[in-house]
Design a protein around this nucleic acid. Structure first.
Lengths: 161, 161
DNA sequence: CGTATTATTGATAATAATTCCTAATAAGGA
DNA sequence: TCCTTATTAGGAATTATTATCAATAATACG
């Protein structure tokens, strides 16, 4: 087992949490995992769930899929531009690239030269409305679609700040 | 002013907050904006800052740059794959795409057909270590670089789940 | 210009998500 | 089996944010 070499123990709680995270394919939040695990271990505590999710994630047995930092951030620059986030301190800088550059493919290496960051990955996240929300509250997001996100047809090039 | 038609008022506090968000180019958090604004308006309260940041963002005068949802999520599937997030409810689904598809350029329209989401944007976020963190604690992230993120050279195609 | 209306404020309480603390427990090596 | 010590349950503490509400002040209107 991956945990052994760090003198970590595979407790019953830990293995049940691992099983449940693997079983449910809906990218659960900590409290949802807690609910599921509690069906099998009624005396388990929330702290145990959080602790083990961290242990399992840093062992590579499960993944954390964000957010990387909990605090909301704001930007007075409302023009379309990309950001680079430091996983060490959460600092965010603007990415200054010419429009002709290909967004996803050439950027990782280019970024290492353009910024002082050590860049070793990117996250490409698509935003939209699921089928239910589209029906129920699609009208609420009309302004969001144009002001908060990159407009359609404007993603081929990246604008600097 | 953009606020008028909604019968919103441009108060002194609101305009100072807007000025300060525009002035500082470091993507500040709410508490950092609070500190800055308090230099000019010592009696302002945190609640006023939060309230106005929301008002200004929904008026399009500033941007919120994440996180879109505050709760951490977990994934038992540790293979590389992308996600699609619903901005209505926060639900996250896997994106199932063939490796030959180009990540950034063709995906937005393709996603609309592959999922039941209404996709109207994407977020491309680069992850790395800023110059300071690289020096101070780069060694702490060696495992993170390979296990938590997409490995170098494996980003040209997208893996389904 | 004065006044009425009501959006907004400051102060504080409440909430949500997560982390920390500690004595008791139990995993796993000897 | 016993010993060491990582881990647990339970609860308190912390962090970030939202809600409440009486007092204040921005703006429309006469």
């Amino acid at each position: 087992m991956v945990l052994e070499h760090k003198r970590q123990r595979m407790t019953h709680q830990r293995s049940v949490i691992l099983e449940e995270v693997r079983r449910c394919h809906d990218h659960p939040k900590a409290d949802e995992i807690y609910e599921r695990v509690r069906d099998r271990l009624p005396r388990i505590s929330m702290g145990t769930v959080y602790r083990n999710l961290d242990v399992l994630a840093s062992s590579g047995l499960i993944r954390k899929i964000g957010p990387d930092f909990p605090q909301m951030r704001f930007d007075g620059n409302t023009h379309d531009h990309y950001h680079v986030t430091c996983i060490g301190c959460g600092r965010i800088d603007d990415v200054e690239l010419e429009p002709q550059d290909d967004p996803a493919l050439q950027l990782e290496s280019a970024l290492g030269k353009l910024t002082k960051y050590g860049v070793f990955g990117h996250k490409l996240e698509f935003l939209g409305l699921c089928a239910e929300c589209k029906k129920q509250k699609g009208h609420l997001f009309r302004e969001f679609q144009v002001t908060e996100l990159f407009e359609e047809g404007r993603n081929n090039g990246i604008k600097g700040k």
